[in-house]
């Protein structure tokens, strides 16, 4: 599997197929250095699972990639386009950030659907208002996507009337509606009751199977092992170990990873 070379992150990797590249990413909150130089590359079609203990910087890394957090330093390249940064890491060009964000769809732990809009309105919001897709076209596509995630018939329901699993599936439909070149999942099942986890994982598994590029922060080790072609273990803001899932899970090298895996097993 040649995609397994994913995060080898040598600058010579084939940049035409490169979806996301992060180089020497640092991020501090005040005096607290949360990311201490992270390098990561995902080629198109890669499913990169990011695992690590709570507070290791997984969310921060994901949020730096679409600039929900401002990196302290480093380089971020999305689909071959480097994000222009000022000296302090803030985006130099807001328009560029907004354009790049429309290609990276994020799925949040807390779903973050817009509560004053129905599921259909949630799904068409960005296509219609940001991407300027004709409304009729966006609606037709939204019906397809909601059907696909098993929410056909719930178009006119408001998020608060749905279970967490249904809300998260709707959030995935919203993400797919922008036709993203990569998807960022931040613990998509951590806020769900155990019996609802499966339905969301099934949807994500399908997306992986159809070759979607994704970065997936997760505590579901079995699932990561199954869908990812590359696994990154983050420890205190550094990549402690990475490789194909069979290696990382089957034959961990570092003591910390061994300990982490036995603690979550």
């Amino acid at each position: 599997m040649d995609t397994a070379t994913a995060a080898a992150s040598s600058p010579e990797t084939d940049t035409r197929r490169e979806a996301i590249r992060v180089e020497d990413l640092h991020k501090s909150f005040g005096n607290l250095e949360v990311l201490k130089g992270v390098d990561l590359t995902a080629q198109q079609g890669d499913v990169v699972a990011i695992i690590g203990g709570s507070g290791s910087g997984k969310s921060t890394m994901l949020r730096c990639i679409n600039f929900l957090e401002t990196p302290s330093s480093g380089k971020i390249v999305i689909g071959g386009e480097e994000v222009a940064m000022r000296g302090d890491g803030s985006p130099a060009n807001q328009k560029q950030i907004e354009r790049i964000r429309t290609k990276l769809a994020m799925v949040f732990q807390q779903f973050n659907l817009w509560t004053h809009r129905t599921l259909l309105e949630n799904v068409i919001e960005v296509p219609v208002h940001v991407l300027k897709v004709p409304k009729a076209e966006a609606i037709a596509r939204a019906h397809e996507l909601l059907n696909r995630v098993g929410l056909g018939g719930k178009e006119d329901t408001y998020p608060a009337y749905l279970s967490g699993g249904q809300q998260q599936r709707a959030a995935i439909a919203r993400a797919l509606a922008v036709d993203p070149s990569a998807m960022l999942f931040d613990e998509p099942t951590s806020a769900l009751d155990p019996e609802l986890v499966g339905e969301v994982l099934t949807v994500i598994r399908d997306l992986a199977a159809e070759g979607r590029t994704m970065l997936l922060v997760t505590h579901e080790m079995k699932f990561a092992r199954e869908v990812a072609n590359h696994v990154v273990y983050l420890y205190q803001g550094r990549i402690e170990e990475q490789g194909p899932p069979a290696e990382v899970f089957g034959n961990p090298q570092s003591e910390r990873l061994k300990q982490f895996l036995s603690s979550v097993a």
Partner: peptide
């Protein structure tokens, strides 16, 4: 809830659109 605004940001909405489409209705 900040999540509502973050979701809008993460999908590339410009600040004024976030105010009009998300913050004010919410």
């Amino acid at each position: 809830p900040v999540g509502q605004i973050e979701a809008a940001k993460s999908y590339g909405m410009p600040a004024f659109m976030i105010m009009r489409r998300v913050t004010i209705p919410a």
